[in-house]
């Protein structure tokens, strides 16, 4: 059975903040932070936006592009590290808001930045086994970095939804594989508002080791090499790591350009590679081959070998719903407004 992506939708909040705005508050050189992290701006959720609203917007865009009956959706998984509720699933609210309830299974996933791709794997498994007709896999985050921490310059908001099925597939998932170890590079303890990380430790033994091993294993199993792919999307915690990992694996800057969005929208965590894949699908042609590798701290990588089909030509990919249109529609805010929107200001009686 051919399993793959039937439709997709991405959503990025409209507000942006520049690293210079953040650096000025903490007495840091904004140019140096911008250059060091490869970040020109990051997205900021509005005061009425959270993981659930972003997930719903992305899922509704995905549904508006294809003609599937929402009652045929058999599973919804929402991957995030910033679910609004500690107990109560985001997925049930998303399922209700897209009219997929009640005959389906729904659950939330958490695996730092790769919870959304874990959702794709689960949906693909359920579709492939014939248990469900369609599954909706969502990666959505409104991540927070502690004020003044390096993460504050990159942690942003956004998400993407992928409808997985076996009919009218626009992009076939040829194979997916994962690479998982216990690596304490980034975490957030229960009840803590902000995450902690292992500084430089997050590089070599965490991000690079997992992505390179996972991508290597996939290409070995598929008997492919980097030049077989038209596009590659790697997890993008900042603007530098994905460029560096692509080079190490033998991919060119041209191959990763389309799916590299962190320099303008920041690290959308669970949304990161998924919005990158959406941006690639916005411009991809039939027969294009895509390698996507997610990375989630803690740690693990999910890699996907994807081939675009002729069906993509039938999908409505234009207009205000494309990733490039979402990126263009932006408004820069000051640190004060950002702090207000992100709930960093303590109100009387709150």
């Amino acid at each position: 059975m051919e399993v793959g992506i039937v439709s997709y939708g991405a959503y990025v909040p409209r507000y942006r903040i520049k690293p210079h705005e953040i650096a000025a508050v903490w007495g840091v050189d904004g140019d140096a932070m911008s250059k060091g992290l490869g970040i020109q701006s990051k997205s900021v959720p509005g005061p009425d936006e959270d993981v659930i609203t972003i997930a719903v917007e992305a899922a509704r865009i995905a549904l508006s592009r294809c003609k599937i009956d929402t009652k045929d959706i058999g599973s919804i998984y929402v991957g995030s590290e910033s679910h609004p509720y500690a107990v109560k699933p985001s997925a049930t609210i998303v399922a209700e808001a897209i009219g997929a309830t009640p005959d389906l299974t729904a659950a939330d996933y958490e695996f730092a930045c790769k919870a959304g791709t874990a959702a794709i794997q689960t949906c693909a498994g359920l579709v492939g086994s014939g248990s469900i007709k369609y599954g909706v896999a969502i990666g959505s985050d409104t991540s927070q970095g502690a004020p003044g921490d390096a993460l504050e310059y990159t942690a942003s908001a956004g998400g993407a939804a992928f409808i997985i099925g076996s009919e009218n597939v626009i992009a076939k998932i040829n194979r997916t594989c994962s690479y998982t170890t216990d690596t304490p590079d980034f975490w957030r303890r229960e009840g803590e508002k902000y995450p902690s990380h292992g500084g430089r430790f997050t590089g070599e033994p965490a991000y690079f080791k997992h992505i390179i091993s996972c991508a290597g294993n996939l290409m070995k199993k598929q008997d492919t090499k980097p030049s077989d792919y038209n596009y590659a999307v790697f997890h993008q915690p900042n603007g530098k790591f994905p460029v560096s990992v692509a080079k190490k694996l033998g991919f060119t800057k041209e191959q990763i350009k389309e799916g590299l969005l962190t320099p303008v929208i920041g690290n959308t965590y669970s949304g990161a590679v998924m919005i990158g894949l959406a941006a690639v699908l916005d411009v991809a042609k039939p027969e294009d081959r895509i390698l996507m590798v997610a990375y989630g701290s803690g740690a693990g990588s999910d890699s996907f070998d994807i081939t675009v089909t002729d069906e993509i030509e039938k999908l409505n990919r234009n207009g205000t719903q494309s990733v490039s249109a979402l990126i263009k529609n932006h408004k820069f805010v000051s640190y004060a407004t950002y702090a207000k929107y992100m709930g960093k200001i303590h109100l009387r009686g709150a």
Partner: peptide, 16 residues
């Protein structure tokens, strides 16, 4: 658009 309308304080239900 689908948005947060309100919430019953920090520990209460979120209304969408």
């Amino acid at each position: 658009a689908f948005r947060k309308i309100g919430e019953d304080g920090k520990s209460g239900v979120i209304y969408y």
